[in-house]
């Protein structure tokens, strides 16, 4: 499928601020499952935008605005083609010893250890006990853990903040996509399965209602034996399919937050975010189909 995504973030300040520095993770990745064909970032006030690829392979944009400004607006527009199946099947199972035999495993220290927002607390351990052991089949366990979160946690906005710890959201049994992703990642890592955070988008025009479509979304990828990184969305209880667009991967939210920054000035800021994701009607492809159909008709007439 092909999508256009407009992601606008605006900060308004009670009084003008100055010397603001902003770092963005807004450019969708290009990999085997999706391809970002177009990306534009426009900033108000106007300034030069720089970019680099970070250690995870994400594309990062950053810029500075020195003079006083009462508003900072960042608009990212991208077009992405996704090539995942519409209804992916659960992969076949594999025991833990298959994972332990994987030579890549020892290189995944960062995805096996706690990270700033993914810590192993008492509540998390209790949740892990509820779900059970992963020994015999880590694949099944992963999907089961993800589903367990979907079924037992309530999606409630403003129950948590970007700083909420995993243990706190486990205690609340509530949160938003970011919290659910962190909980699943923490469960995986606690059980010796490498897991990483994915920020991205989910398309809501797929019939059944989905959660997390009005802003940027987040989910989890686990490293599974003979499969590699495999995405699961614990917010919607779904294996990642063609309706998902990946922006960036990291240890947790902090590595890939869509927009973060610092500025000078005492004024408090208010942020508004607007994400619009549309399926792109491909004119060229439709024309080609129409032409082929017309030619077929002509041939039949002859």
């Amino acid at each position: 499928m092909q999508f256009t995504i407009a992601h606008e973030t605006t900060y308004r300040y009670a009084e003008p601020i100055h010397e603001s520095y902003t770092i963005c993770h807004l450019q969708p990745l290009s990999d085997l499952d999706q391809y970002c064909t177009r990306f534009e970032l426009s900033v108000i006030p106007r300034t030069r935008v720089f970019s680099y690829a970070d250690r995870f392979g994400n594309f990062v944009q950053h810029f500075s605005v020195i003079p006083e400004h009462p508003l900072l607006s960042i608009a990212a527009r991208s077009t992405v083609v996704t090539a995942r199946p519409q209804d992916p099947q659960a992969p076949s199972g594999a025991p833990r010893k298959a994972l332990l035999a994987d030579p890549q495993l020892r290189l995944l220290y960062d995805f096996l250890s706690p990270s700033p927002l993914v810590e192993f607390g008492r509540n998390l351990r209790a949740l892990s006990d509820e779900i059970g052991e992963a020994e015999s089949d880590v694949v099944a366990w992963y999907l089961c853990a993800g589903k367990y979160i979907k079924d037992n946690f309530a999606y409630i906005k403003r129950a948590t903040t970007v700083h909420t710890t995993v243990d706190e959201s486990v205690r609340l049994r509530a949160g938003v996509c970011q919290d659910f992703a962190h909980v699943l990642i923490a469960l995986c890592r606690l059980n010796g399965i490498p897991a990483r955070y994915v920020s991205g988008y989910i398309f809501s025009g797929q019939g059944d209602s989905v959660l997390g479509a009005e802003a940027s979304h987040a989910w989890c990828e686990a490293y599974l034996p003979e499969i590699g990184w495999f995405g699961y969305d614990p917010t919607n209880g779904k294996i990642i399919n063609e309706y998902f667009v990946k922006i960036a991967i990291g240890r947790d939210y902090r590595d890939v937050s869509p927009v973060r920054g610092v500025y000078k000035g005492l004024a408090k800021s208010t942020m508004s975010v607007n994400v619009a994701m549309d399926e792109l009607y491909d004119v060229d492809r439709e024309r080609a189909l129409a032409r082929a159909f017309a030619e077929q008709q002509q041939q039949q007439q002859q």
Binding site: H18, E19, I66, P67, E68, K264
Partner: peptide, 10 residues
């Protein structure tokens, strides 16, 4: 403003 501006002119 000239010699020690709070916000420098970039």
């Amino acid at each position: 403003r000239i010699y020690f501006p709070r916000i420098p002119v970039a």
